[in-house]
Amino acid sequence: MSTVRGTALLGFKAFCASQGIDPASALAAVELPEDPLDARLSGAQFNALIDLCAQRSHNPLFGVQFGLRQGTQSLGTLLYAMRSSGTVGEALNLLTRYFHIHSDGALVQLERQAGNALLLYDVTDGTFISVRQTVELAMGIASCLLRELLGHAWQPKSLLLRHSAPANRLAYRALLGVAPRFDSPVNAWVFDESLLTTPLSTTDARYQQLARQHIDELARVTLEELPSYLQKRLRNELAHGPVTLHDMAEYMMISPRTLQRYLRAQGSGFQALLDQTRRSMAARYLCDSSLSLTQVAGLLGYADLSAFSRAFTRWNGVSPQQWKQRMQHLPR
């Protein structure tokens, strides 16, 4: 089960009030305490809370607006360490390395592609089917972070979102300065790669050292966390093609045999984790996006649609088409 730091709900009550929602009632509906800031929240409860608030407020932009209102304050110690970095690129590398302290059910990555930088975000907890609101909340926070680090130099090229476009898609431009490209293969802010070299104002070097020591202590990964870590890597790599045990072992700089032994010690195995990851990603794509089944098959690393359809039917007892039709008739 994934978790989120309670600080992810900083400013939640005031924002709910501005949206005409009773925050105490919303928290109680998902079985969260009335004062959640000092708690470690269940990722499922957090995701359900943001989704519920979007429904109760009749505001499909609730998530992104809450992210923009909250800004970077929820990142806590990690934000101070980032501000102490030498460049924007170094700051974002810290974010990708330590974000799991803030939320261990999501993954942040920084990639460079053809002169562009991509700050990517993905909810890796496969138990959630729809994550539209949570993703948009995170992208709103990321927008605030990049604007804080870059100032007037922050000029995004595009915002990519995996889920399908809502009816009021033009409202995003007013909020974010850019109209998102929906039904994209990833969730990402895209901007000029040269901005990564932008220098940041230096701060107390001793404070920076203490901040990094603190997050290093929190970031120690145990053997028990290996299956979850591996699933995060699988989610990132599957869109680029089939992923094998050998690929993952090479990335982790251990032998395939050692990786399998570690996974067996945790009651799991590579193929089981691969199936679980594909199954949860498939459900999310079919629920949240308008991608074709052939596109979904490719994003899950299948060679063709028939291979994906056979696997999906084995997991769920119905074909992808039948499953999607059932989901469309459920209340959302």
Rank of each mutant, 00 (worst) to 15 (best):
W323K: 03
N93S: 09
Y302H: 14
R326Q: 15
R181T: 15
D216Q: 11
L245S: 10
G317P: 03
T7M: 14
E136L: 10
T202S: 15
E250P: 00
Y262P: 01
Q133F: 00
L79D: 07
S184N: 06
L195I: 09
L61V: 08
F12Q: 02
S309W: 00
H163G: 05
Q73L: 12
E136S: 12
S228P: 00
Q271M: 13
A272H: 10
L291Y: 02
P227I: 07
A26G: 03
C287M: 07
V190E: 13
A142F: 08
E225M: 11
I129M: 12
R69K: 09
Y229H: 11
V88H: 01
W189T: 14
S158E: 14
L9I: 13
N93A: 08
K232N: 13
S228K: 06
A114C: 03
D122G: 01
S18A: 15
R264F: 00
D247Q: 07
G89C: 02
L27P: 07
P256E: 05
T294M: 04
G43A: 04
A153Q: 15
L149S: 08
L286A: 13
T258L: 04
R97T: 14
V131R: 09
Q276A: 15
A297P: 05
R284I: 05
V4C: 13
A28C: 04
L52G: 10
L305C: 03
Q45S: 11
A39H: 14
T198H: 13
L291N: 08
M1G: 14
K157T: 14
M139W: 00
D204R: 07
D204W: 05
L49Q: 01
L146T: 06
L291A: 11
P256M: 04
D35T: 14
A307M: 07
P33Y: 03
V108W: 09
T222V: 02
S194C: 11
N187E: 09
Q271P: 02
P166M: 04
A28Y: 00
S289E: 04
S306Q: 12
G63L: 03
H214Y: 12
L245E: 13
K157L: 14
F308Q: 04
D104L: 09
T277K: 04
Q322Y: 01
L52F: 05
M327N: 08
G63Q: 04
L49S: 02
A167M: 10
L52C: 06
Y251A: 11
D104N: 15
L195E: 12
A142T: 02
L234S: 05
R132V: 14
D304S: 11
Y285R: 04
